[in-house]
Design a protein around this nucleic acid. Sequence first.
RNA 1: GCCGGGGUGGUGUAGCCUGGUUAGCACAGGGGACUGUGGAUCCCCUAGCCCGGGUUCAAAUCCCGGCCCCGGCCCCA
Length: 434
Amino acid sequence: MDRIQRVKGTRDLLPEDMAKRRYVFEKIREVFEAYGFKEILTPTFEYTKLFELRSGEEVVEQLYAFEDKGGRNIALRPDLTSSVARLFVNYFQTAPKPIRWYYIANMFRYEEPQSGRLREFWQAGVELIGSPNIEADAEVIALFIESYLNTGLREFTVNIGDRVILDEFAKMLGVEDDIGLMRLIDKKDKMSREDFTKSLREFGLGEEEIEKVFALIELKGKPDDVLPKAYELFESETAREELKKIEELFELLKAYGVENYALIDFGIARGFDYYTSIVFEAIAPNDLGIGSIGGGGRYDNLIEVFGGKPTPATGFAIGIERLIPILESKGLLPELKVGSDVFIVYIGNELEIKKKAIEITQMLRKAKIKAEYDIQRRKLSKALDYANSIGARVVVILGKRDLAEGKVTIRNMKSGEQITIPIEKTVEEVKKML
RNA sequence: GCCGGGGUGGUGUAGCCUGGUUAGCACAGGGGACUGUGGAUCCCCUAGCCCGGGUUCAAAUCCCGGCCCCGGCCCCA
């Protein structure tokens, strides 16, 4: 008969995978908590309308959307930002600001799987709701950087862009389709200079405008280098005020001690069209074909879109399926042992001796030692073989002769060394061997 | 949605181009010999050509379609 396979774009996570994920999640969670963020979780599915309100009806194409038995149009969450905004509008509009929430959850998008992209994937993210100030952007970006640092990652940058600047830029060029221009600029790193120029021409820009686009995308690097040039390029009051905010942002990041990881890149747009000003994404160089490992930004209009009072907010999400392979390829994940440390074997098949094996196993377990006894009725040699294969470091052997004297034998699987000890000393002696 | 490369026991593979033994090997798994040390050795067993159609006397092998995997494009709200 045909066996049922995994659904396209999904993954089975085996014990070793889960150990790695738990490790990475814990490292990220530690930092989130240290910044005073509180964990929340919203339902796995929402009314499709929620996502349509945010992004337009065409997003249904990229959603896992379906009709349930009650005739409701439902979609699995593609991220948590919409749900968090909904939650806020429904119950928390009068709560003291700012609200600091974090989540670690799986998301679903109906897209073609490829490197670093699955249909079900996990994100660890935060939302900081209620502050319009640059302090909030700084807080979130600092937390973003520190989260990566706590996983052990060092080779990465957080590139910071700004939607206001891009809007002003589009105005400056007299471009109507500002979103189209942003998308094009966002792709600059994916193509050669020639191809990029060609795309800009096809978009309808003249040579002078193209020059300006290149001037813009060269606004990339440390603020000390970039900002003076930016002040030259932009003359509008709006743009200059925004540049001032960015200047302050970097001063704040210095106070956090994370400024070395932050760069300006005014070519960054990020796809999400609900972002309103500061946007950012983390890039870690790798040869795995993985692009951004996380990103976020300010979304000051979204809560209004969902029927709430206008409320500023900012946040980010870290893509776990992208981060873990990078950490792994750089050797930044510790050796994570899964399974029992101690294996208990008994020789013979008498009920009494089995009960003894269980009692000893329980003694070890109560002492928080990972232990299991042989429930396969294995012979000693096969039992040792099995103990070896599961990576048990110590084997407790119960033989009739030892038991008659109230003793057991414990074997250090690494050295092969064995000692015979009184049963009541088992926990103590096993601990010494671990 | 589009393009390229793939799909052989649980895992890794040989066979495919050039159609023809019972689809080979290794590892893993189960059992046995062994009954207090063999983390071994030996023996036995389990288990596979992604699915469907076509060509042919004959298909794992050639052709078409589908599904899935890997990668790229679109998209990434």
